[in-house]
């Protein structure tokens, strides 16, 4: 009995220590963001004696935050809308016909190849290509995301579709439905769970991505949230409270998202990890 108790205490202690290690950076960001510079240099870890929201006002005044937030938002939402339409549309014919049609079989492997191709190999030519085509901007970036997600998204979706019996579609075809009708009224609703999974996974990828925007976006007004944070930290590195406030502001949207969709997010990110 006592041995069991020691063990239980050990488990809880370890879990709580882990919790602290995870929480401390967030705690520090939050408390530092409401301190003044002079207080922070005297008291880095403790709660603020007199909390101030001035850092947040300063950031709003500087005027780079809201455009970055809106850029990230627009890029993510448009990309997600694209994923939601294009990926199921492409996955449906490929999944249903790759068994009988050579062309669709080849298409499947052609698209799947992207899972193996690391971004590095195309990164430099892409930057060149975007500049040549004059689309080194937000819209070009969205095209890159759409192109970059097809392999994994289609892999997950065709896998899901292969478990769905074709009876319903066949019946609808016999009743004279067009392919478009079958897709919008039968297939798309059936695919909703897998579409949601793919969207959540890609949502976090697009929202959090730093590498692609840092290489493709040229203009200050195109900056996404990660680029804003990076530039901000570079500019005000020594003003610790101000920089921490910028991080807190940048994290708020994703924190809200996580609180609401926690279960789906964990599932979505895991499905990608296992299958992609």
């Amino acid at each position: 009995m006592t041995r069991k108790r020691i063990r239980t205490i050990g488990v809880y202690t370890a879990l709580i220590i882990g919790l602290f290690i995870i929480a401390i950076p967030f705690y520090l960001s939050l408390v530092s963001s409401v301190k003044t510079q002079s207080e922070l240099s005297r008291n880095f870890f403790g709660l603020p004696v007199k909390a101030t929201l001035e850092n947040y006002f300063t950031i709003m005044q500087k005027g780079d935050f809201l455009p970055a937030l809106s850029n990230s938002f627009v890029i993510t939402v448009v990309s997600l809308a694209g994923f939601a339409i294009l990926l199921p549309m492409a996955s449906y014919p490929i999944s249903r016909r790759m068994g009988t049609s050579r062309i669709y079989m080849m298409l499947y492997y052609y698209m799947l190849a992207s899972i193996f191709i690391p971004f590095q190999v195309k990164m430099i030519p892409i930057v060149k290509l975007m500049n040549t085509l004059n689309i080194a901007n937000r819209w070009g970036l969205i095209l890159l995301y759409l192109a970059g997600s097809t392999g994994e998204g289609m892999f997950l979706m065709t896998g899901y579709l292969s478990t769905i019996p074709t009876d319903m579609e066949e019946a609808a075809y016999i009743d004279g439905a067009s392919t478009w009708q079958v897709f919008t009224q039968i297939i798309a609703p059936v695919m909703r769970p897998i579409t949601a999974t793919v969207l959540i996974k890609n949502c976090l990828w697009v929202w959090n991505d730093f590498m692609m925007p840092s290489m493709v976006l040229r203009l200050r007004e195109d900056r996404t949230l990660p680029l804003f944070q990076y530039a901000f930290q570079g500019e005000y590195a020594t003003n610790y409270p101000l920089v921490f406030a910028a991080f807190v502001m940048a994290m708020i949207p994703i924190m809200i998202f996580y609180c609401i969709m926690q279960k789906n997010i964990i599932e979505g990110m895991m499905s990608g990890a296992v299958k992609g």
């Binding site: 492409a90 014919p93 490929i94 892409i126 290509l129 759409l146 897709f183």
Partner: peptide
């Protein structure tokens, strides 16, 4: 025809922005 039109956007985006840059590289 519908099937071909369904796959066309994804396949062309993928070809232009994922496969073509590799050969360019």
């Amino acid at each position: 025809l519908t099937h071909a039109l369904f796959v066309l956007p994804s396949v062309s985006l993928y070809t232009i922005f994922s496969i073509f840059p590799i050969f360019l590289g």
